[in-house]
Every structure is written in C-alpha cells, then in structure tokens.
Design a protein around this nucleic acid. Structure first.
Lengths: 153, 153
DNA sequence: GCATTTTAGTTTGAAAATCAAAATATATAA
DNA sequence: TTATATATTTTGATTTTCAAACTAAAATGC
C-alpha cells in the first residue's frame, strides 16, 4: 500500500486504516449478540421484538409509542398490536402523556420490571464472561470507548 | 492473626465493579445498531433476516443450512423457505457439500456479493462516524478489545 | 456387515408478525 | 380560524415463522 497525499476534502471524513477491521469486528459482535438474544428469547417463549421493548423500557424508562416504534424499527401500527398483547400479559401499561394529549406513554409494570431484571442478569453474566480475561483497566477502557460510540450514534 | 479468607467460589466468577455499567453500554449499543440496521434494511426492501444472511455469508463464506439457521436464530424449516426466495432473487445459490451428502452449502452469487459489499460500505461509514473522535491508538485498542470479546463468545 | 439412532434438509398447514393505508384526535403553523 | 402536521389505532392483506411430519444420509452399536 502506498502512502497517499493529504487530501483536505477527504481527511475530514477519512477512513482510517483500522476501520475496516473494526467494522467487521463490530458486525461479528452484533451477529453473535443477536444470535445469543434470539436463543435466550425463544427458550422463554417471547419474541425478539417483545424483549427489545422490555429492554428499552427497562433502560430508558417510560416512552411514547412513536419513540419506541422508531427505536425498535417497526411501524406504530405494528407496535400498537404488540403493546396490546403485552398489556394483556401485564408486562407493560399505557399512561397518558402529561402535556401532549395525542401521545401515550408506555412503561413497565412491576411484573415487567421483574422480567427486565431477570433478563438483564443474563446479559450481565454474558458481559462478565466475555470480559473475564481483561484487566480492570481494560474493562474500564472498553466502557469508556463504547460509551463514546453510543454518544455519537 | 489471620488474613481475611479468600472467597474462592466467588472470585472465580466475580462480577467486577464496572461490569454493570459495561453491560448497559453494550445493550444500548446493540439496540442502536439493531435500530440502525432495521431502518437501512426497510429502505432497501429487504427483511432483517435476509440481510443477516447476506452479512453472515459475506463475512464467513459458504455455510451449511443448519449452521446458518443456528447463527441467524431460526429453524431450518424457516431458513429453507427464506433461502428459496433468495435463490429466486439470485442473491445466493445452493451447492452440495463435498463430503456430507445430507448437507447443502449456501453461498453468495456475484449479485449477492455485490449487495454485501454495498451493505458493508454503509456499515463502514457508520463505524467511521462513530469512531471519528477517537485517536488512532484508541481505535486499535477498541479493535483489540472487541476482537477478544468475540473470541470468548 | 446390518440394524438403530442421530443429523440435515424440505414440506406443509396453521399461527403470529408486519405493513400500508384509512380513520380519529390533538397539536402546530399560517 | 383554517390548514397542515403529528400520534395513535384499526383494518385487511401479505409475509414470516414455527412445529411436526417426512425423506435421505451419516454415525453408532452390536
């Protein structure tokens, strides 16, 4: 590989040399996590989408339908029927938005919160296993780097 | 005077102090990536599952049906009909396994390879954006840490 | 070798998830 | 005030998915 001259137009959004490797490691990590989650979820009898909802509400707290639909990646129509079922199973509840009367807030019930904690514990165990061979410094470095990536998202 | 006893049972699988934070950052990263992928995919008219297949075959090369089904997280029955459609659209092709006559290998066609490269480029741009503010050292450190996590999976 | 069990993949029919579009209600802008 | 935009629900059709039955080949036990 030849050393390229500095191109100002490019350097602003330059593709760094490790980025392609980094990209594939991220894709692989995503695929593995996705597969792990799928397996966990199937065992418990939930759909992947339902567990995403539980996770999102557990991490972020109450959320509007639209917001939740965007984060999960489905239409609001799809979400309405999904939330209907989850309300029936008593994992979540609907609550009117304080200021916007068009909006509905969805939040975890106590039962839903318990489910979140149970699922979160599985994630924690996975995280612990995956980072078991790292030093404390490496773990907090990883935390720092991932936090910064999330902020840029 | 005795020194406080080591708790062997615990120390073997100790939950480190940053792990809960790390866990939630990972979950958040996964949710964001999942949402991003969902949006990309719907724009192009593919299903999430189809794109996962393209990604997996693009990164890993030809794979048996069973292997692919396990990685995606669906039954082989589901995969059979999905691959049928993808064969019809000429993104993938089936090829007999060299030594195991029960098995079928699935691999990308040229058209499928092109689709993978196109999708991969979007991922690369995302990766570049997310790590834009990091130094070269930080990026290679991140690469190192994520690679090690993938190995433990 | 031969019978039994396991594994890989396909087919099928029913159940579940999803979408787009239409409908309703509220908020915002002109 | 009127027009436009946003949030949610409903509906009907399409697509995805699963479980179970089925075929074929490999692995195991004797």
């Amino acid at each position: 590989m030849t050393v390229a001259p500095q191109h100002d137009a490019l350097s602003a959004s330059a593709i760094h040399s490790t980025d392609q490797a980094l990209n594939h490691v991220i894709i692989e990590f995503y695929e593995k996590l996705s597969s792990w989650e799928h397996a966990i979820v199937r065992d418990k009898g939930f759909s992947l989408s339902q567990v995403h909802t539980i996770e999102l509400l557990g991490v972020h707290g109450a959320m509007r339908m639209k917001e939740l639909a965007d984060k999960i990646g489905v239409t609001t129509g799809t979400l309405t029927v999904q939330i209907d079922k989850m309300v029936e199973s008593q994992w979540v509840m609907r609550r009117p938005h304080e200021t916007d009367r068009r909006s509905i807030l969805v939040e975890l019930t106590e039962k839903g919160q318990a489910l979140f904690l149970e699922h979160d514990a599985l994630h924690l165990q996975l995280t612990t296993d995956l980072t078991a061979k790292m030093s404390a410094e490496e773990r907090s470095l990883l935390l720092n780097l991932l936090t910064r990536m999330n902020q840029e998202f």
